[in-house]
Protein backbone atom coordinates (compact mmCIF):
# COMPACT_ATOMS: atom_id res chain seq x y z
CA UNK A 1 0.00 0.00 0.00
CA UNK A 2 2.82 2.36 0.94
CA UNK A 3 4.53 1.38 -2.30
CA UNK A 4 1.46 2.39 -4.30
CA UNK A 5 1.13 5.75 -2.52
CA UNK A 6 4.84 6.51 -3.02
CA UNK A 7 4.65 5.53 -6.69
CA UNK A 8 1.67 7.80 -7.34
CA UNK A 9 3.26 10.75 -5.49
CA UNK A 10 6.54 10.48 -7.43
CA UNK A 11 4.80 9.75 -10.75
CA UNK A 12 2.50 12.76 -10.37
CA UNK A 13 5.42 15.07 -9.54
CA UNK A 14 7.44 13.70 -12.48
CA UNK A 15 4.67 14.03 -15.08
CA UNK A 16 3.38 17.45 -13.94
CA UNK A 17 6.92 18.90 -13.78
CA UNK A 18 7.73 17.42 -17.20
CA UNK A 19 4.66 19.11 -18.70
CA UNK A 20 5.75 22.39 -17.06
CA UNK A 21 9.31 21.97 -18.45
CA UNK A 22 7.86 21.86 -21.95
CA UNK A 23 5.30 24.65 -21.52
CA UNK A 24 7.13 27.33 -19.47
CA UNK A 25 8.02 30.64 -21.18
CA UNK A 26 11.11 31.29 -19.06
CA UNK A 27 14.06 28.93 -19.56
CA UNK A 28 15.15 29.26 -15.92
CA UNK A 29 11.73 28.05 -14.76
CA UNK A 30 12.00 25.13 -17.17
CA UNK A 31 15.35 24.18 -15.67
CA UNK A 32 13.88 24.33 -12.14
CA UNK A 33 10.99 22.05 -13.10
CA UNK A 34 13.46 19.71 -14.84
CA UNK A 35 15.20 19.43 -11.47
CA UNK A 36 11.88 18.49 -9.84
CA UNK A 37 11.30 15.82 -12.50
CA UNK A 38 14.80 14.39 -12.02
CA UNK A 39 14.34 14.18 -8.23
CA UNK A 40 10.97 12.46 -8.70
CA UNK A 41 12.54 9.95 -11.10
CA UNK A 42 15.22 9.28 -8.48
CA UNK A 43 12.38 8.51 -6.07
CA UNK A 44 10.87 6.13 -8.65
CA UNK A 45 14.25 4.36 -8.82
CA UNK A 46 14.14 3.96 -5.04
CA UNK A 47 10.71 2.29 -5.23
CA UNK A 48 12.22 -0.09 -7.82
CA UNK A 49 14.99 -1.12 -5.35
CA UNK A 50 17.71 0.54 -7.46
CA UNK A 51 19.32 2.54 -4.65
CA UNK A 52 22.68 2.98 -6.39
CA UNK A 53 21.06 4.42 -9.50
CA UNK A 54 18.92 6.77 -7.42
CA UNK A 55 22.15 8.19 -6.00
CA UNK A 56 23.75 8.36 -9.44
CA UNK A 57 20.64 10.10 -10.78
CA UNK A 58 20.81 12.81 -8.11
CA UNK A 59 24.59 13.30 -8.34
CA UNK A 60 25.06 13.15 -12.13
CA UNK A 61 21.76 14.57 -13.39
CA UNK A 62 20.88 17.17 -10.76
CA UNK A 63 24.41 17.92 -9.59
CA UNK A 64 26.07 17.79 -13.01
CA UNK A 65 23.86 18.12 -16.03
CA UNK A 66 21.26 20.46 -14.54
CA UNK A 67 23.93 22.79 -13.10
CA UNK A 68 25.57 22.82 -16.55
CA UNK A 69 22.24 23.80 -18.09
CA UNK A 70 21.81 26.64 -15.58
CA UNK A 71 25.37 27.85 -16.24
CA UNK A 72 24.72 28.05 -19.98
CA UNK A 73 21.39 29.83 -19.38
CA UNK A 74 23.27 32.40 -17.28
CA UNK A 75 25.89 32.85 -20.02
CA UNK A 76 23.40 33.60 -22.77
CA UNK A 77 20.69 36.21 -22.57
CA UNK A 78 17.25 35.05 -21.51
CA UNK A 79 15.22 38.24 -21.87
CA UNK A 80 15.10 38.44 -25.64
CA UNK A 81 14.16 34.80 -26.16
CA UNK A 82 11.27 35.22 -23.74
CA UNK A 83 9.49 37.76 -25.94
CA UNK A 84 9.79 35.72 -29.11
CA UNK A 85 7.26 33.19 -30.31
CA UNK A 86 7.78 30.11 -28.21
CA UNK A 87 6.22 27.44 -30.39
CA UNK A 88 6.87 26.23 -33.89
CA UNK A 89 4.44 26.63 -36.74
CA UNK A 90 4.72 22.89 -37.37
CA UNK A 91 2.43 22.00 -34.47
CA UNK A 92 0.03 20.01 -36.69
CA UNK A 93 2.88 17.66 -37.63
CA UNK A 94 3.85 17.51 -33.95
CA UNK A 95 0.28 16.57 -32.93
CA UNK A 96 0.07 13.85 -35.61
CA UNK A 97 3.48 12.42 -34.68
CA UNK A 98 2.68 12.42 -30.96
CA UNK A 99 -0.72 10.81 -31.60
CA UNK A 100 0.94 8.04 -33.62
CA UNK A 101 3.55 7.56 -30.88
CA UNK A 102 0.93 7.40 -28.11
CA UNK A 103 -1.16 4.96 -30.16
CA UNK A 104 1.85 2.75 -30.84
CA UNK A 105 3.02 2.63 -27.21
CA UNK A 106 -0.55 2.21 -25.95
CA UNK A 107 -1.20 -0.69 -28.32
CA UNK A 108 2.04 -2.39 -27.32
CA UNK A 109 1.33 -1.96 -23.61
CA UNK A 110 -2.28 -3.15 -24.07
CA UNK A 111 -1.19 -6.29 -25.95
CA UNK A 112 1.45 -7.14 -23.37
CA UNK A 113 -0.32 -6.08 -20.18
CA UNK A 114 -1.03 -9.65 -19.02
CA UNK A 115 2.68 -10.45 -18.88
CA UNK A 116 3.47 -7.39 -16.74
CA UNK A 117 1.05 -8.05 -13.87
CA UNK A 118 2.67 -11.33 -12.81
CA UNK A 119 3.78 -10.98 -9.19
CA UNK A 120 7.57 -10.59 -8.97
CA UNK A 121 7.72 -13.25 -6.26
CA UNK A 122 7.43 -15.96 -8.95
CA UNK A 123 11.14 -15.55 -9.68
CA UNK A 124 13.30 -15.87 -6.56
CA UNK A 125 15.70 -12.99 -5.94
CA UNK A 126 19.05 -13.70 -7.54
CA UNK A 127 21.49 -12.72 -4.81
CA UNK A 128 19.55 -11.20 -1.93
CA UNK A 129 22.55 -11.33 0.42
CA UNK A 130 24.63 -8.50 -1.03
CA UNK A 131 23.61 -4.91 -1.60
CA UNK A 132 22.49 -3.16 -4.77
CA UNK A 133 25.74 -1.22 -5.24
CA UNK A 134 27.76 -4.42 -4.95
CA UNK A 135 25.61 -6.18 -7.55
CA UNK A 136 25.84 -3.29 -10.01
CA UNK A 137 29.59 -2.92 -9.45
CA UNK A 138 30.26 -6.61 -9.91
CA UNK A 139 28.30 -6.72 -13.16
CA UNK A 140 29.93 -3.50 -14.38
CA UNK A 141 33.50 -4.65 -13.75
CA UNK A 142 33.13 -8.27 -14.94
CA UNK A 143 30.53 -8.87 -17.67
CA UNK A 144 30.41 -5.28 -18.93
CA UNK A 145 34.05 -4.22 -18.61
CA UNK A 146 34.54 -3.43 -22.31
CA UNK A 147 31.38 -1.26 -22.64
CA UNK A 148 32.46 0.48 -19.42
CA UNK A 149 35.85 1.37 -20.93
CA UNK A 150 34.21 2.49 -24.17
CA UNK A 151 31.92 4.73 -22.11
CA UNK A 152 34.98 6.34 -20.51
CA UNK A 153 36.44 7.03 -23.98
CA UNK A 154 33.08 8.52 -24.99
CA UNK A 155 33.24 10.86 -21.98
CA UNK A 156 36.81 11.89 -22.89
CA UNK A 157 35.74 12.67 -26.47
CA UNK A 158 32.78 14.67 -25.14
CA UNK A 159 35.06 16.71 -22.84
CA UNK A 160 37.48 17.51 -25.68
CA UNK A 161 34.60 18.28 -28.04
CA UNK A 162 32.90 20.63 -25.57
CA UNK A 163 36.17 22.50 -24.92
CA UNK A 164 36.93 22.87 -28.63
CA UNK A 165 33.38 23.99 -29.46
CA UNK A 166 33.16 26.68 -26.80
CA UNK A 167 36.79 27.84 -26.96
CA UNK A 168 37.31 31.53 -27.74
CA UNK A 169 39.23 31.98 -30.98
CA UNK A 170 42.61 33.64 -30.51
CA UNK A 171 43.76 36.54 -32.68
CA UNK A 172 46.36 34.35 -34.37
CA UNK A 173 43.73 31.98 -35.70
CA UNK A 174 41.45 34.67 -37.11
Amino acid sequence: MLELVLFYIFATIAVVSAILVVTQQNVVHSAAFLGATLFAVAGIFLTLHAEFLAGVQVIVYVGGILVLFVFVIMLISVERAQHERQYNRQWTIAVVTSAILIGEIGYGLYRGKDTFVLPPAVIPPAVPASGNSELVGTALYTSYLLPFEIASILLLVAIVGAVVLSKRRTAAEE
Binding site: A14, V15, A18, I19, V21, V22, Q24, V27, S30, A31, T37, V41, F69, V72, I73, A81, E84, R85, Q86, Y87, N88, Q90, W91, I93, A94, T97, S98, L101, I102, I105, G106, L109
Partner: peptide, 19 residues
Protein backbone atom coordinates in the same frame (compact mmCIF):
# COMPACT_ATOMS: atom_id res chain seq x y z
CA UNK B 1 5.65 6.23 -21.96
CA UNK B 2 4.08 9.44 -20.60
CA UNK B 3 7.48 11.07 -19.92
CA UNK B 4 8.81 10.01 -23.35
CA UNK B 5 5.77 11.41 -25.15
CA UNK B 6 6.07 14.73 -23.26
CA UNK B 7 9.72 14.87 -24.35
CA UNK B 8 8.81 14.21 -27.98
CA UNK B 9 6.16 16.95 -27.89
CA UNK B 10 8.74 19.35 -26.41
CA UNK B 11 11.33 18.59 -29.09
CA UNK B 12 8.79 18.97 -31.90
CA UNK B 13 6.98 22.12 -30.77
CA UNK B 14 9.43 24.37 -28.90
CA UNK B 15 11.78 26.80 -30.65
CA UNK B 16 14.16 27.50 -27.75
CA UNK B 17 17.17 25.20 -28.10
CA UNK B 18 17.71 24.95 -24.32
CA UNK B 19 14.20 23.53 -23.83
Amino acid sequence: AALFTIGVIGVLTRRNIMI
